[in-house]
Simulated assay, not measured.
Amino acid sequence: MIKVMKLQKAVYAIILGVIALVVYIIMATTDQLGSRYALEVSGVFFMAAAILFLYPLWTAKEDELGRVELDPEKQEEMDIAQEIKEEQKEIKEELEKEELEIVPEANPATTGIK
């Protein structure tokens, strides 16, 4: 499921953040000078993961009713269905225009009907 929703990079960033946090804890207990930088790297990885977790929400599409589908497979099906509906609507409008052009309007003055 994680691979399907394109969240794999976010999971990797969380894992790297946890590793950097463990490195910070080890360095802080031994009073190393660079422990602060390990904590900063950990924070950067956690922030990047948070942004990557929001990616599917930013790219999600709404349907006519304002609902959002986050499952990419269903979203592709929804896109195809919406395109089919739009094509059917265009064909229907074209047919209506052709019918108006083919069937002339009955005018009593020109037909001689009283």
Rank of each mutant, 00 (worst) to 15 (best):
L54I: 06
L100E: 13
L52Y: 04
E94L: 02
K89E: 15
L70M: 12
K114Y: 03
A50C: 10
T59F: 08
K61W: 03
Q32A: 14
A13H: 04
E77K: 10
K61G: 03
P104S: 04
Y37M: 11
L39T: 07
K6L: 03
Y24K: 07
I102N: 02
K9I: 01
I15M: 07
M27Y: 13
Y37L: 13
L54M: 12
I91N: 05
E40W: 14
L52M: 12
Q88A: 10
L70I: 01
I25M: 12
V44Q: 05
L95K: 08
E94S: 03
A28F: 12
V41P: 01
D31S: 13
M47E: 14
V68E: 11
M27K: 14
V23N: 12
Y55M: 10
I51Q: 05
I80F: 14
A48G: 10
K9R: 08
G43D: 05
K74A: 09
V22G: 12
M47G: 06
A49R: 00
E99Q: 12
M78S: 07
F45I: 01
E94H: 01
K92C: 04
A20F: 13
Q32H: 10
I19E: 15
K85L: 05
Q82S: 15
E87F: 08
G112V: 01
E73R: 09
K3F: 07
L57R: 07
I102P: 00
K6V: 02
A28R: 12
A109C: 04
K3Y: 06
I113K: 14
G112T: 00
A10N: 02
A28T: 07
E90A: 14
A48N: 08
I14W: 04
L52G: 06
